[in-house]
Design a protein around this nucleic acid. Structure first.
Length: 444
RNA sequence: GCGCCCUUCGUCUAUCGGUUAGGACCCCAGAUUUUCAAUCUGGUAAGAGGGGUUCGACUCCCCUAGGGCGUGCCA
């Protein structure tokens, strides 16, 4: 059986760390299995969905490298949902209800105050034809609920193992709104059947839904897919991800200068038994992914880890890959430069600072000009990759300075910073003229 | 309120009744025959609490505490 999965975001906002996990996990699983990945835009709510967000979602996925094999808009598939609706009606699994939202709210509050679970009482099921006609005559339009069988629905979850949901303890889900709009549940199942989705992979916030949806699959005469419910992410302090980090969008991370592979590596490996580090590629991620490596409790998303992983991606990036981006930043100073500085980058844009050290003007940090003058006097006429070692040895000999006292003043004078890449290659890249002037205390 | 799920080093996790409780990140130390960083090596550090079951429990059961999710004419 060929694996086929789907990611079904609503275009009511941009993708963020909270919901991108579903996309990434689905994608790496599908690719690892040689399967298909379907992008299904859940735009049945025409009020809240926008084309801008839809485009934004595609932009985000594409930037992350999460390509799709099929793409659908649910708004273009209403005939299929009507078909499913008729089928459920014909089986008496879909029944019209006339309560208003206020009435339902009130009823829930009463149940809660009595210590009862707020479950729909199915009053509408007992309505006679005359009563229904009377309500319709009043101008009331029905919303439609799916009649649950009220049994223990069981499945073997790829992450959580044997699971069961008692649908007797939940309200019959509303499938169609008073205004005729389809809610998420029915289109989701109808599409999963129609598209031949083999695995439904989503957050654990959907486990209860799974009970109801499996009943709908059965009612529509379709086999149920395999389910996998991964744990949700929480913030670094264990707080729910909704508010602060949920709003940390892929777009923001991108604008902050994060690498797509860092984001996908972090999100795919967080909460698994794989080391939380940069993958070589998305294919590498896909190859190492397995559901049985996933933990069952919420994992903490810490931006500090993302920075570290981002640095890891940069440390391994070859010049060919970096070159166009270096060029864009006006920081393409050749392969030797890139190889010398990449180890010190956290964000790609950090490279511009180092490019200035090599190709631009730097104001030296001078504490002891006499020492620097002495060092400058020992600087050879020609500088190459071997110069640094020989030169510093000579300076040590002449001044008696060693260790930090020897190197730090030279680093600060030559780069204007107290930290940075290895000085050997850097000195060669800076060149004799700039080096000499900086040692003399000049901005050069 | 009710229901479901979860709880091992600071963090992510391994362990599926008998282990010196392992790994990765962070942190600390050493090395790179002298610098910050990077890199390499080493080290510190854990079974929420309380009851059972058992010759023996991190592992099975119960209670408590803590956390997540659900309980929508949201997805």
């Amino acid at each position: 059986m060929t694996v086929k999965v789907r990611f079904a975001p609503s275009p009511t906002g941009r993708l963020h760390v909270g919901n991108i996990r579903a996309a990434i996990v689905n994608w790496v699983f599908a690719r690892g299995q040689g399967g298909k990945f379907v992008l299904r835009i859940d735009d049945t709510d025409l009020e809240r969905s926008t084309k801008e967000y839809e485009q934004g979602i595609e932009t985000d996925l594409t930037w992350l490298g999460l390509t799709w094999d099929e793409r659908h808009n649910q708004s273009a598939r209403f005939p299929l949902y009507h078909q499913a609706m008729e089928r459920l009606k014909a089986q008496n699994r879909l029944y019209p209800c006339y309560e208003t939202q206020d009435e339902l709210d009130r009823r829930r509050k009463v149940q809660l105050s009595r210590g009862q679970p707020p479950i729909y009482d199915r009053a509408a099921l007992k309505l006679t034809d005359e009563e229904r006609a009377a309500l319709e005559a009043e101008g009331r339009r029905p919303h439609w609920r799916f009649r649950l069988e009220g049994k223990r629905v069981k499945w073997n979850d790829l992450v959580r193992g044997p699971c069961e949901v008692d649908t007797a303890s939940m309200s019959d889900p509303v499938l169609i709104r008073e205004d005729g709009a389809f809610l998420y549940t029915l289109p989701s199942v109808a599409d999963d059947i129609d598209m031949g989705i083999t695995h439904i992979i989503r957050g654990e916030d959907h486990v209860t839904n799974t009970g109801a949806q499996m009943e709908i699959f059965e009612a529509l005469g379709a086999p149920t897919p395999v389910f996998a419910h991964f744990s949700l992410l929480v913030g670094a302090e264990g707080e729910a991800l909704g508010k602060r980090l949920g709003s940390l969008s892929i777009l923001q991370l991108r604008e902050q200068g994060h690498e797509p592979l860092a984001i996908t590596s972090h999100i795919a490996r967080l909460g698994t038994s794989d080391p939380l580090e940069a993958a070589d590629s998305l294919a590498d991620l896909a190859g190492s992914f397995a559901f049985d490596k996933m933990g069952r409790h919420p994992a903490r998303f810490d931006p500090v880890d993302l920075s570290r992983i981002n640095a890891g991606v940069l440390h391994a990036m070859d010049y060919e890959t970096a070159q166009p981006r270096l060029s864009n930043l006006g920081a393409d100073l050749g392969e030797a430069f890139w190889l010398a500085v990449r180890q010190n980058l956290v964000l790609f844009s950090d490279v511009t600072i180092l490019a200035r050290v090599v190709g631009g003007a730097v104001t030296p940090l001078v504490e002891d000009q006499a020492f620097l003058d002495q060092a400058a006097g020992l600087l050879p006429e020609t500088i190459d990759g071997e110069t640094w070692g020989r030169w510093t040895a000579a300076v040590k000999e002449a001044t008696g300075a060693k260790g930090r006292a020897l190197f730090m003043p030279l680093r600060k004078a030559l780069t204007g910073m107290d930290h940075g890449p290895e000085m050997g290659p850097l000195l060669a890249l800076i060149g004799r003229e700039k080096a000499a002037r900086r040692l003399a205390g000049e901005t050069a």
